[in-house]
Every structure is written in structure tokens, then in C-alpha cells.
Design a binder for these strands. Sequence first.
RNA 1: GGAGGCUUAGCUCAGCUGGUAGAGCGCUCGCCUCACACGCGAGAGGUCACAGAUUCGAGUUCUGUAGUCUCCACCA
Length: 881
Amino acid sequence: MKKELPKTYEPQEVEGRIYAAWEQAGCFKTVRDPDKKPFTIVIPPPNVTGQLHMGHAMDSTLQDTLIRFKRMQGYAALWVPGTDHAGIATQIKVEEDLRVNEGRTRYDLGREKFLERVWAWKEKYGGRIVEQQKKLGASCDWDRARFTMDEGLSAAVRHVFVSLYNKGLIYKGSRIVNWCPHCTTALSDAEVEYKDKPGKLWHIRYPIVGEADKYVIVATTRPETMLGDSGVAVHPEDERYADIVGKTCLLPLVEREIPIVADEYVDRAFGTGCVKMTPAHDPNDFEVGLRHSLENIRVIEDDGTISQGYGKYSGLDRYEARKAILADLEAGGYLVKTEDHQHNVGTCYRCGSDVEPLISAQWFVKMEPLAREALRVVQDGELKFVPDRFAKIYTNWMENVHDWCISRQLWWGHRIPAWTCDDCGQMTVAETDPTECAHCHSKRIRQEEDVLDTWFSSALWPFSTLGWPDENSEDLKYFYPTNVLVTGYDIIFFWVARMVFSGCEHTGRSPFHTVLIHGLVRDEKGRKMSKSLGNGIDPLEIIDQYGCDALRFNLVSGNSPGNDMRFFTERCEAYRNFANKIWNASRFLMMNLTIDRCALPDRLELEDKWILSRLNRLIAEVTENMEKYELGVAAAKIYDFIWDDYCDWYIELTKSRLQGQDEEAKTSAQQVLCHVLTQVLKLLHPFMPFITEEVWQALPHGAEVGEGTFLMLQSWPAVDPHLDFPEEEKSMALIMEAIGAVRTRRSEMNVPPSKKTHLTLVTADAPIFRQGEAHLKRLAYADQVTITTDAPADQTGMVSVVTHAAQMLIPLAELVDLEQEKARLDRELAKVQKDLDGLKTKLGNPNFVEKAPANVVQAERDRQEKLEALLEKLTQQRQGM
RNA sequence: GGAGGCUUAGCUCAGCUGGUAGAGCGCUCGCCUCACACGCGAGAGGUCACAGAUUCGAGUUCUGUAGUCUCCACCA
């Protein structure tokens, strides 16, 4: 049974082998089992051609940790993987590739050829991210991997579109939308990022018609839009302008007569109190325009250039046109004043270009009816956010949501299933491609050119991946609704909110009951990791260097739900060391192992009961933390137990038995060591799947575990009520305290461990300390231990160390400076006295004794007793000097 | 303008339902002790941003202040 293992754990050698073994054995397959409860997580599908970054690594690690935990708990734990077609992002990449390598645009190829290119691109890069997820140890059921443009998922999209259209919840209309001139597509509100940019506020004079030398001055940040002005607005109660309301003014350069209207939208205090109205290029102006029947004059084209019909400005880019117009206004004497002005500009979340609001015919989802149910499920507690505060953010958004613009002027995506009839002009919307108009049966029908917003399909992800809309899908019946959704707070609006109202609307239920929100992974300076900054840390490189387990542990520990974390590579080093620690602990066990079955012995020693009792508590606490999604807390507890309790103490405590002559004691030590390690490996497995599996495979198991099985399929440890030993824990604490006191004293005197001394221990609890005699000998560096209830009369040549339960004498007095020793004792006495005084005051307070819980009061009394005992011993010692 | 987070040891952060402040890294001292120097033992270092309130008792609850970050809305 003895095995030779390398001194240092080599994750690079282990991880690939273990993952392959899991895969080969079918460990990732999740089957519907009527005897089990399902537990389902759907992965936030990464962009199909994307690369794994640290954000994915954290997201995936959290999900994998949960799913492994639940799997071990006996659930049919399903983690559905997959990828998103990522409309704009992917199309931009392929277009860029086309431009760089062939100098062509998508229009050169045409829609059909271009889409062939995108599919080819997807085939080429689509598998990359899946392979990278496997490197993270992800235990997804890969056979169920889905892609948002799969046949089934596309059918779900069509079904939803038709259903919402028929309910009147999808409509097409000319509205002012956010337009990206670079991507040449409409964007939803969520896709616009507002950024503060320095700008100018230009004051421009508009002459009033028919009144020589009279004029209004308007203030604008966007002078180029004046070409599309169709009015000027003032506040109805603004006395300065009361006389000109109803008159018209002459738009400079364009020479168009436009009305002056009064509208409450205008803020009298801002600028001059006069606002130029450009309904076709400003959402607020659009609203005012509706109220006053102002003309919508579109002057900026889809590509951001000025429309035809505006002379020399036509064809110019909007910012070039701005310069030209300002120059002409100045020359014409219309420009009154230029001020600096901090301006909040909407930008495209994909390419960063300034968004151009413009009127355009687009498709929308009517949100108000859908939002109602999405709000209710949160209010009624059917959907919970962890942490709770994100429910407010969600609710606030949902309450103020505008209609969702779902059409995109792209080619890559789900094409809108709507056909316009050339004859009757009516719309046919259908799940299967129609051959004729549903209204007049004309064959002359044309499909919409636009595709749907990427998020339209991801909104269906939790149920479309499980077979919906086929209501008879067994997977759907068994695994839906899913349990937890794990994602970053940055896509609550894009994705989570839309999944919720979609789930409610189409399946009648919230698609999950819990949303676990995590933060962003930032660099060590707290900056967002990004390509443009070049500060991204590649998770794969970290895995190569420190191992996947170390990376995973770094990502889940030391951070709490919803909060951003900074990524420090050094912490991976720390957790690599932790993996190595586990490796060496088990290596130690292997080297000492003579048993071939792991079961607890009948007779347990004091230290055995101590570690088993502590293990019991660890199991209880970790399980509770995991259930409450406190993964970081759970991880820290396991780390502390393994390193401090198991390695630093328990292994050391068993050494005298392992190396002794008593065969029974030797065997029982092995059994307990093995049992505890096995249990704790299970607790750690969800966090560090590879090393735990590797070590577990090498350990002997109980009879119930057959060959060819895996740790990842073992059951989660349960608390064993027979293994609670509070008395033994207390006894061990006394012994450990004594050991610590001796060590501290020796360390202060610079006595090396190699110098063994005779240790005399004086105590009223001699029976307890006798049980720990071997431990005292080994760990307090004694060559001989004498335990007695009576202090020796002659203590010359002795250094005395006291704890509240014992006095220890070590013959090292020659190393001690008596005066220093006195001073040290005085300091210690003062400290103990102070603590005791504080405690006496507290216990002397009748309010405390009466109102505090009994156990708290008792704990303080115990503490007082201990301190008094300690004080007495210290005082005696001081007096003897 | 509105909402929220953060402010705890030199650095980065944990700290659940209130009951004597913790980790990792860093630092100091001593050790290559037969699992591990990716290690062992010992230690230094916090009036838990500030001011009030509740309580027998507050890092932990409430109110306010300051600094900082983020999200939402958006005034041309």
C-alpha cells in the first residue's frame, strides 16, 4: 500500500488526466432520476467566438462549485453549457477580418455569402471557449451544449416573436431610437453607455420674422442638428418671451421659417431659456414636437453624415458639419457666445461611438404588461437576489422600463419573421416561412431585413435550452424552472431582467428562484480588466503556472457576493501552496499507511475525539454556508481546518502513535487520519476539484465505495451526532494551551527545538494532562515529562511558565535575565489584572447578568475563573523571585 | 437629480442572525525537527472613517456627516 509520491504537487500533470477520466467515465452526464430532486443552473452563454477571461473564470468557478456541491448532496445536478451568437460583437469581428484581409465589406459579399463567412468563423473559433471552460474544471453536461442559433433555439425565438406579436406585445413603429452610426444599427436603451465628456454650449441668434432686429438666442451643444430644427421652445410662464410665443423665427443658414412654441419641458434657468427643437434627433424634442405638431426633419443619415439637400453640408460627417456650420454662423454674425460645458454623451456599448438619436422604423416589445409579472415575482419572494440589494436595482429598472427596441440592422442573428405584402401592404408574421400574404394571399411578400437583438434569444435561454416550446419535453418538465442563476451585476438589465419577464410570460413561472450576483474581477490597481488597457490577466496562464485549483480558490475565497474583487497573482501562489500542503499531508499519510480500508476504530484517543468533534462542526458550518451561497466563508473555514487543525496539530499529535510500537494505536491513528482527510476532501472538492480527486483516488476507502468511482460522485459528508466530544475538545484546548505557552517562552529565550529539556507540569487537572503526556513531550520539546499536583519546593534553576490550568517548569534559568523576567511578569500581571477588572465590572452589573442570555453570562464567568487562576499563578511566581 | 456600495493590521480583503477583532501577502526573531522551506515555531502591528442614537453590551442595528466608487435618469 505504501506509495512514493513526488514532494511537490504538480497540477499540470494531474488536471488534464483527471478531467479526461471524468469525461470518459461519463461523470458529467446528468440524467433525469425520479428518485432525485433536480438542481439546475444554466450558464450565462459566452460569445461563441469569445476567449475566456477572468470574469468568465470567476463566473464559471462559482457555478461549478455550487453544482458540484449539489451533485454530492444527491441532486440530479444539471449545469447546461452553451454559447451565444452575440450579434453585433461577432459580426463586427468578421467584418473587421474581411476588411483587413481582403479589403472588402459585407456589402461586397452580400447577405448570404457574408453569413456563410460568419458561420465558418463560428465553426473555427466556436470550440475554443468550450475547451477553455474545461480547463477550469467545469462539470457541465457537455452533451447538452446549446447555441442560440441552433435549430431548436431559433424555433423558440420564432415562437416567442409570433406569440408576442399576436398578443399585440410586439409592434413596429417609427420612433426615436438610439442609433450607432459606426455599427449602423439601432440599439436598445440598455446598450447605450453614458459618458461625461467636455463639450461646448453654443449660443445662436435666430432672427424673428417680420420684426427687424428682434431675435431669440438658443443654446445648444449640437449645432449641426439645427439643420433639422422645426421650432423654438420657451417656457409658457417665462415673461421674457411671452410676446414672441406664436411668432416665427428664421432658421439661419437654412432660411426656414419655424414657429416659437411654449412648452413646460423648457427649463427657464438653463442657458437662455430658449431651446431649439430638433424632433428628429432628440428624444425630448421629439416629445415636444408631438405636442406642438412640429415637423420631424431628419438631417443625419444612418452613417452619421448630413442628408442630401443641405448644400455644402450634405455628405459631411456630423462632426465635420458641425465645424462648417459654426464657421458659417460666426461669419453670418449668428454666433453670440461659446461656453465650456460638461456634457453627458451616449455611446455605443460595443464600439464606443457617440450614439445618434434619430427617428427610424423599428420593432419594439411593449414592456409595461410584461414588467408587471416580473415585478410581482420579486415582490412575492418567488425570485430572490443574493445579495438582496440587487432586487432594488432590478425593481427600479423594471418600474421605469421603456419599450424594448429589438430590431437590429445587422445580418448575423435571428431574422425577424415578418413579411410585408407588396400588394395589400399588410404584415404576415409566422413561425414557418409563409409563401403568401396571410391577408390577400398575394405571393409578392418580402421578409424584413433586420435581425433581432441578441438578448432576445438569450432571454429565453433557461427554457429554450431545455426543449421549450415543446411542452412535452421531459427535460423541461424535470429541470425547469432552474434553481440558481449566477452572473455579474453588469448584465442584470441586459439579461436577467429579460429572462425573468420572458419566463413569466411564456412558461408562467420565474425561470429561477435565486439570482446569485457577483462583482467584476479587477486588476491589482482596481481597474477594469480590458483589452484596450492591456491589463487583462489570462486565466489560462494562471492555470499553467499555479494550477486550476489555486485559481479557483483565489476566485471564490476572500470575496463576497456582489462586490468587485481585485485579482492578485500572489494569492494564487498562496493557494498553490495550500494545494501542496494537502498533497504533502496525504503523502505523509501514504507513507505511514498499512491499512487497506478506511473505517473509524472502536477505541478513540483524546486527540482523535478532538479532531472528529471539530470536523463535525466544520461539516455543519460549511454545509450551512454553502446553502446560503456564502462560498467564500465556507472556503476559508475549510482552509483553516486543513492547515491549522489537521496539519499543524492533528498530524503532529498522531506522530507518536504512528512511530510507536503499539500496533493497535498505530492502526487507529491511521484510520482516523484517513477518515478525517477523506471527509475534508469531500468538503473541499467543489472548490478544488482536481487535487481532491487525485488524492482521494490514492486513499483507501470504506467498503461501500467500489473501484472505478470518483470523489466528484461521492456523497456530501453528514454530521455524525456520535462524534461530538465537547469535553475532549476542552481537554485538548488545555494541553494545546500548555504547549503553546512553553513554545512561546522558549522562543523568547531563543532556545531551538533541538534543545530538549525536562518539563515539570504542576496542575490540578493531572488526569487530563496525563492523556496528553506524549504530545507535551513531542510538541513542547521535552525529553522527559513529569506531571504532578504539587509544586516542587525547590524551583532553583527553573523557568516557570503558567497557564490558568497549569504551571510548567523548565530548567533553563541560566538563559534568563532575572530583571527582564521580573519586568515581563509585571507586564503580564498588569494585563491580566486589567482584563479581570473589566470582566468583574461587567459581571457586577446587574443589568448584564439579568438581561444577557444565560450562556453568555456563563461564558464570562468561566473566563473570570480562568483569569483568576492565571492571576494567582502569576502572582505566586512573581513573589518567588 | 435619484439609488446603492465601500471606508477594519503596511497592502488586498473576510467578518452570518450584536457578546472579549480575522486571513493572505508583507515585516521581525528562531529553525533545512525523519509530510511539506510552495515549510515549521514564535512575534510585532487595528480607538473597525467621523458624530450621535438604540442596547447590559455595536465593527456588527438606526440617523446624520465626510471621502470614494458604481448604477439609473438626464437640462438643450
